[in-house]
Simulated scan of single mutants.
Amino acid sequence: MKRVFLFKDVSDDGRDCCAYIANEPMRFECGHYFGSVNLEGSCYSGSDWKPYCDIKTVLTEAEYRALKKFSKEISKLGYGITVGDERYEKGVQLCKDIQYVYDRLNSEDNEKLFEEIQKEEVEWLMEEYSLDEEDIEAIFNEYALEYRDRSIVGCVFKDTAELGYEEAWELGYIKNGDTIAEKYFDTDRFGEDLLEESHYIQLEDGRVVSLNY
């Protein structure tokens, strides 16, 4: 499902400050219910709506309120809907009535805003993890989803050995202070093998970035 940028919470400098939604309102799911507006990012799904005064978005306050209202109304229709019945026709009308807001989110104006947001996020990532522009380009080129913000970077390891050690410890293969396990478990080889998975990328300087999906 293609997603579009909805807003950035400028009051929060945390990981999940950017929100995205599906790019169209008409989503009749599993043949019996309408999908509501689900705010999501690379690390979360179903976040709360933020106050308009705290966000940066292409939408006007009235459009933002209309989108929130649409989400509530479409959810109220519930499940077990049959194509052509009264609830289905009401859902179709709700989707038609809110289309203008989705057109705004799919507009060039929102693309330009999203480009500005990405620049802000790139600056944050570069400062937070000591990355350069080539590193950022490699990360964004590798990342497969529409998210383009700080949240896609989970962690930056100094090399494959550190990646292997941290992941092996997290999985319970080794324990801190266990000299036998640390002596015989090849963390470097384990880290190299992990690079074959889609959510890791190795940078030119040998560091390894884990990607959030």
Score class of each variant (00 low, 15 high):
residue 151 S to D: 11
residue 49 W to V: 07
residue 186 D to M: 07
residue 3 R to Q: 10
residue 49 W to C: 06
residue 92 V to A: 12
residue 195 L to N: 09
residue 125 L to S: 08
residue 89 E to H: 09
residue 109 D to N: 07
residue 3 R to M: 12
residue 70 F to T: 00
residue 101 V to W: 08
residue 41 G to F: 05
residue 132 D to S: 07
residue 42 S to D: 01
residue 128 E to M: 07
residue 20 Y to G: 01
residue 88 Y to Q: 07
residue 85 D to G: 08
residue 179 T to Y: 06
residue 185 F to R: 05
residue 23 N to A: 13
residue 173 Y to L: 15
residue 148 R to H: 06
residue 211 L to I: 09
residue 113 L to K: 02
residue 171 L to P: 00
residue 31 G to H: 04
residue 174 I to S: 05
residue 188 D to F: 13
residue 122 V to N: 09
residue 176 N to V: 13
residue 210 S to W: 12
residue 133 E to Y: 02
residue 166 E to A: 04
residue 49 W to G: 04
residue 133 E to I: 10
residue 199 H to W: 15
residue 206 G to T: 02
residue 111 E to Y: 10
residue 127 E to G: 03
residue 90 K to F: 08
residue 156 V to N: 07
residue 128 E to R: 15
residue 174 I to G: 08
residue 2 K to D: 04
residue 1 M to D: 03
residue 107 S to K: 04
residue 176 N to A: 07
residue 187 T to Q: 13
residue 20 Y to S: 01
residue 182 E to C: 08
residue 132 D to Y: 10
residue 123 E to C: 01
residue 28 F to V: 05
residue 73 E to D: 14
residue 158 K to S: 12
residue 169 W to P: 00
residue 39 L to S: 02
residue 203 L to R: 05
residue 83 V to C: 06
residue 6 L to H: 03
residue 61 E to W: 08
residue 100 Y to N: 03
residue 74 I to F: 05
residue 148 R to V: 01
residue 47 S to A: 14
residue 47 S to W: 12
residue 160 T to K: 05
residue 50 K to E: 15
residue 179 T to L: 11
residue 141 N to V: 03
residue 123 E to R: 12
residue 33 Y to D: 06
residue 127 E to C: 14
residue 144 A to P: 09
residue 63 E to F: 05
residue 166 E to I: 10
residue 142 E to H: 14
residue 71 S to A: 10
residue 43 C to D: 06
residue 196 E to S: 02
residue 139 I to F: 00
residue 192 E to R: 12
residue 17 C to D: 13
residue 63 E to W: 07
residue 77 L to Q: 11
residue 69 K to R: 15
residue 164 G to W: 04
residue 193 D to W: 06
residue 2 K to R: 05
residue 95 C to A: 13
residue 5 F to C: 01
residue 59 L to N: 01
residue 63 E to P: 00
residue 66 A to C: 01
residue 179 T to S: 12
residue 50 K to R: 12
residue 175 K to Q: 14
residue 78 G to I: 02
residue 43 C to Q: 11
residue 75 S to P: 01
residue 79 Y to M: 11
residue 151 S to V: 06
residue 64 Y to A: 01
residue 144 A to R: 14
residue 183 K to W: 06
residue 89 E to T: 15
residue 201 I to D: 02
residue 38 N to W: 03
residue 39 L to G: 01
residue 192 E to Q: 10
residue 184 Y to V: 08
residue 166 E to S: 11
residue 86 E to S: 11
residue 102 Y to A: 00
residue 85 D to Y: 10
residue 87 R to D: 02
residue 74 I to T: 04
residue 177 G to P: 13
residue 18 C to N: 04
residue 94 L to H: 03
residue 22 A to I: 14
residue 162 E to W: 11
residue 100 Y to W: 05
residue 173 Y to H: 10
residue 135 D to R: 03
residue 146 E to S: 07
residue 176 N to W: 08
